[in-house]
Amino acid sequence: MAALKLVSLLALAATILPSVLFLTQTVNHETVLWVAIISTIVWFVATPLWMGSELRPDLDQVEI
């Protein structure tokens, strides 16, 4: 479980970090796009495996 959480955390960080590196001109836009989609896939594979199935009581509420 802890390992899965770490994977999710790293995936989440990987969605933002490349954009910071793009801002500092360390990586190019193409790299950002690839890392973002790969880390997105990792997030959606890993996170449901550990995130509790308990629903937030506000999830049926309308939001703007």
């Binding site: 933002i16 954009s19 997105t40």
Partner: peptide, 9 residues
Amino acid sequence: AIFAACGLI
């Protein structure tokens, strides 16, 4: 995270 990334990009 994606919103933040979009802003930075």
